[in-house]
């Protein structure tokens, strides 16, 4: 549980932390598109180098970012199994009689895994270097043009902000419930599948109940402090674009252009 790093803001004073959240969100979206361009291993190598450079500038320890990978291990194994079972192209690497493993299955899985890891790294950098409230502001500003077609920009931004603000609280709550259930003899690590499911239910039910109670109390606190979703509000923090923000967005576009070029050339 303590390994969950997604959504945790790390307060530091670095060039990445100082960037405008709108620029960071835009750059992240462009980089995510770039990851999906089939630019081959060279392309992914370039993106990885760029990400590592950004991590270096943000002064966030690499091992902290790597912690975000842990919850994805199961998904990666699942992808490997699916690909091994379904992809039957390329050179035969291993023949077990009942199962044949082809090179394309492994390469395809590696492609997906690398894409996933790069995506996690980018989104983790964004949440680690941007205050939840700034993230909210950034999302709200970027969604403002879509208000005309009925997109509830402010509400979406507020939901995201509260979700991010409460991630550490919910993690703490989960740990507390887990410890309390462990003290009553519930074993979360060992046992058969049926026992594990029963253990997880004993965790999820109180967690949902507590979370709903929290949500109710938070809504009351917000309402009592004059919050009305549709009502006009002023903003304490106002965003201001600077030259470095423009450089970031241009840099992200250049990366995308490079990936497209590589994809065409390769």
């Amino acid at each position: 549980m303590n390994n969950i790093v997604f959504g945790k803001y790390i307060p530091l004073d670095t060039p990445i932390h100082r960037l405008d959240p709108r620029a960071k969100i835009l750059a992240m979206l462009i980089a995510l598109v770039a990851i999906f361009i089939p630019a081959g291993w060279y392309g992914y190598g370039i993106i990885a180098v760029v990400i590592l450079f950004v991590i270096h500038l943000s002064k966030i320890k690499l091992k902290v970012i790597f912690k975000a990978f842990k919850p994805m291990i199961f998904m990666m194994c699942f992808l490997l199994v699916i690909n091994v079972l379904s992809v039957k192209e390329g050179a035969l690497l291993l023949d077990l009689g009942f199962l044949e493993i082809y090179s394309k299955a492994i390469i395809d899985t590696l492609y997906i895994i690398v894409r996933l890891l790069l995506m996690i790294m980018i989104t983790t950098i964004l949440t680690m270097t941007t205050k939840p409230l700034d993230l909210t502001l950034g999302i709200e500003y970027l969604l403002t043009p879509f208000k005309k077609i009925g997109v509830p920009a402010h509400e979406i931004a507020m939901i995201i902000s509260i979700a991010l603000r409460f991630i550490p609280t919910i993690i703490e709550e989960t740990m507390r419930i887990m410890n309390s259930q462990k003290s009553r003899g519930v074993d979360f690590e060992e046992g058969k599948l049926k026992e594990k499911i029963s253990a997880i239910i004993s965790l999820i039910v109180p967690l949902f109940s507590v979370s709903l109670l929290r949500a109710d109390e938070l809504a009351n606190a917000m309402e009592a402090r004059g919050y009305v979703p549709q009502a006009p509000r002023t903003r304490y923090r106002r965003l201001k674009y600077e030259r470095r923000d423009l450089i970031l967005v241009i840099g992200a576009f250049l990366l995308l252009a490079l990936m497209i070029t590589l994809a065409i050339v390769i």
Partner: peptide, 16 residues
């Protein structure tokens, strides 16, 4: 505690 820092939390009501 709605916002991510003390400063911003005190500002929440003022913004409203």
């Amino acid at each position: 505690f709605i916002a991510s820092t003390v400063r911003e939390d005190i500002a929440f009501g003022l913004e409203n």
